[in-house]
Simulated scan of single mutants.
Amino acid sequence: MNCALVTGASRGLGRAIAVQLAIDHGLYMLVNYASNLQAAEETLAAIASNGGQGEIIHFNVQVKTEVDAALNDWKEKNNDKFISVLVNNAGITRDGLLMWMPENDWDDVMNISVKGFYNVTQHVIQQMLRKRSGRVVNIASLSGLKGVAGQTNYSAAKGAMIAATKALAQEVAKRKITVNAVAPGFIASDMTKDLNEDELKQMVPMNRFGSAEEVAHLVSFLVSDKAGYITGEVININGGIYS
């Protein structure tokens, strides 16, 4: 049975992506969460209510021992399942000007996005390489392409994910594994709820924030057979703000 692992799938973009992949591709969903079990259970319930199947898997993406232990334990209990799709979605923001940024705010943002990408992808891609099949989609950001003042840490983290996407795609292409990134702009979610939407949407040519579901549809396309010849790409979804 083919499965999809979505990191940080308890809320926002991760939840929307997990639900959409179950609907569109019939994948057995692994809903990863770090701290909010109730929210992860709500994601799983949303998958089930749309006719999908899955389970919750707990680990902090930035801690390699946790990632390896959780995924090894899951594999031992699920010999008939193959994680054919990985969506590296886990990420946080700790905004502030670099001159006053605490070291922890830099480290936490970098470790969850970049070290988390390494920890989870390195583990999951081993089986993809053996099976000569797989899809990896990394959730980057407009910040990683354009750079955003007050987000030097987040811009650095997402920029690193973009560069890693391009390099890894070249390493695994011969094994029929695609690696792409999606770079959302302003998306209505938990991460943007404290922003002034009325003011910021004036920066967007489409004059609105995007929805998590719109991002999920793009990820779903990249996971599909229709996207089999697309790899190493960064696809913007931002209403024209960076076109």
Results as ranks from 00 to 15, higher is better:
Val234Gly: 04
Ala70Thr: 08
Val219Trp: 01
Phe209Gly: 05
Val19Met: 09
Ala160His: 03
Asn50Arg: 09
Glu55Lys: 03
Lys174Val: 10
Ser155Val: 01
Ala70Gln: 07
Gly8Ser: 09
Asp24Gln: 12
Arg132Glu: 14
Gly232Gln: 12
Trp100Lys: 15
Ile162Trp: 00
Val63Phe: 13
Gly185His: 08
Leu37Lys: 14
Gly12Phe: 03
Val148Ala: 09
Asn36Thr: 13
Leu129Met: 15
Gln38Ala: 08
Gln170Arg: 14
Val19Glu: 01
Ile187Lys: 11
Trp106Arg: 02
His123Gln: 11
Ala167Tyr: 06
Lys77Ala: 09
Thr165Asn: 00
Thr121Tyr: 02
Lys166Asn: 03
Met110Phe: 12
Val204Met: 07
Ile92Thr: 15
Glu42Trp: 01
Val63Tyr: 11
Asp108Tyr: 13
Phe82Asp: 09
Ser113His: 15
Ile125Phe: 12
Val85Glu: 03
Gly159Phe: 00
Lys193Pro: 06
Asp105Cys: 06
Gln126Trp: 15
Gly96Pro: 02
Ala48His: 11
Val120Tyr: 06
Val234Ile: 15
Ser189Tyr: 07
Lys146His: 06
Ile187Asn: 13
Ile17Val: 09
Ala156Trp: 04
Phe59Gln: 04
Ile17Asn: 01
Gly210Thr: 10
Leu30Ala: 02
Gly147Ala: 04
Asp225Val: 10
Gly150Gln: 07
His25Leu: 10
Asp73Gln: 09
Tyr229Gln: 07
Met161Phe: 08
Val136Pro: 11
Gln53Cys: 01
Val87Met: 04
Gly116Trp: 02
Asp194Phe: 11
Gly8Thr: 06
Glu41Leu: 12
Gly96Phe: 03
Phe221Cys: 03
Ala70His: 15
Asn79Tyr: 12
Ala9Arg: 05
Ala48Gly: 10
Asp194His: 08
Leu145Gln: 11
Met191Ile: 09
Thr231Asp: 03
Gly240His: 12
Leu37Glu: 15
Gly26Val: 06
Glu66Val: 00
Thr231Phe: 02
Thr7Arg: 09
Met29Ala: 08
Asp194Tyr: 08
Gln20Met: 07
Asp80Gln: 05
Ile47His: 05
Ala45Asn: 13
Asn236Gln: 14
Asn138Leu: 14
Asn32Trp: 01
Ile112His: 02
Ser189Met: 05
Gln170Lys: 14
Ile237Asp: 01
Arg175Asn: 13
Arg15Thr: 06
Leu98Lys: 07
Leu200Arg: 09
Trp106Pro: 08
Leu129Gln: 12
Ala70Ile: 09
Pro205Asp: 05
His58Val: 06
Cys3His: 07
Val137Lys: 00
Ala212Gly: 09
Asn2Leu: 07
Met1Val: 15
Val179Cys: 00
Asp198Leu: 01
Trp74Thr: 03
Val219Gln: 05
Asp68Met: 06
Met110His: 02
Ala156Ser: 07
Ala216Gln: 00
Asp105Asn: 12
Lys174Gln: 13
Arg15Asp: 05
Gln122Lys: 13
Arg130His: 11
Glu42Met: 06
Gln170Leu: 14
Gln127Gly: 12
Glu197Tyr: 12
Ala160Met: 02
Val85Arg: 00
Ala48Gln: 12
Glu171Asp: 10
Lys226Thr: 03
